[in-house]
């Protein structure tokens, strides 16, 4: 006769296995959703880049630039929303690896920011005031969460402001280059119009820098 201890072990293992696969399924679904959204955005960005290349090649900036500006704004917004989703998924999905998606997100972020610079050179102005926001990925930071809240409120108030978030401690070549360019040594830090503001920056200080066009 099977002892009660063995029976209990089998029951517990079955329960745990069931639980594990359920949690794994949930986590994978969330990670997959995130991955799909990043992929969609990458595809949209590729399309925009190709259009920019076409504009440059055939010098059609007058017709195409307004549309490019519009899609770029939408993409930056999407990317910033993805930033919140990424952080949420990262802290809640314990059985899914989001590191790869995170790197793709950061690269897309960097690429979009560079694309915006290119757009400005081709179209004259993008009508967008970018704010680069530097935060630590591996460390909890109340000031950074406060800074993010301030940036959210500025973005909501000003139609021309868009935020690009960069983690400073993930050792990614392109982010390191941006950090070095703007002499980022502390978090949170923000860059507005090529000006680095170290530490937490108030809403008023940001508004005084961005020439806010109210929503």
């Amino acid at each position: 006769m099977v002892s009660v201890y063995v029976k209990a072990l089998v029951i517990t293992l079955v329960l745990f296995a069931g639980n594990y696969f359920f949690v794994k399924y949930l986590d994978d679904s969330r990670a997959q959703d995130l991955q799909t959204r990043v992929s969609d955005l990458e595809e949209e960005m590729q399309s925009a880049r190709t259009l920019l290349l076409y504009t440059q090649t055939y010098n059609r900036s007058t017709e195409i630039c307004p549309a490019l500006e519009e899609t770029t704004r939408a993409q930056i917004n999407k990317l910033y929303d993805l930033f919140s989703q990424l952080q949420q998924t990262e802290s809640s999905a314990v059985l899914a690896d989001t590191a790869r998606t995170k790197r793709r997100f950061i690269l897309a972020n960097s690429e979009l920011w560079l694309y915006l610079r290119q757009l400005e050179s081709v179209c004259g102005s993008s009508g967008i005031t970018p704010i680069l926001y530097f935060y630590p990925d591996q460390r909890d930071c109340v000031e950074c969460r406060a800074q993010a809240q301030i940036l959210n409120s500025v973005r909501d108030a000003c139609s021309n402001v868009r935020v690009f978030a960069f983690p400073t401690d993930l050792d990614l070549g392109v982010v390191n280059a941006i950090k070095s360019r703007y002499s980022i040594t502390t978090t949170p830090s923000i860059v507005i119009n090529e000006k680095t503001l170290a530490g937490i920056t108030s809403r008023d200080a940001i508004l005084s820098e961005v020439a806010c066009i109210k929503n």
Binding site: A93, E143, A146, I150, I200
Partner: peptide, 28 residues
Amino acid sequence: LGAVGVAQVDASLVTNLGIYSGAIVNSS
């Protein structure tokens, strides 16, 4: 400690719950 630093820049943010660590609710 963070809230003290935040208060020096914008005291109104101290009452914004979004700046504090949420409970650890994850799939575990």
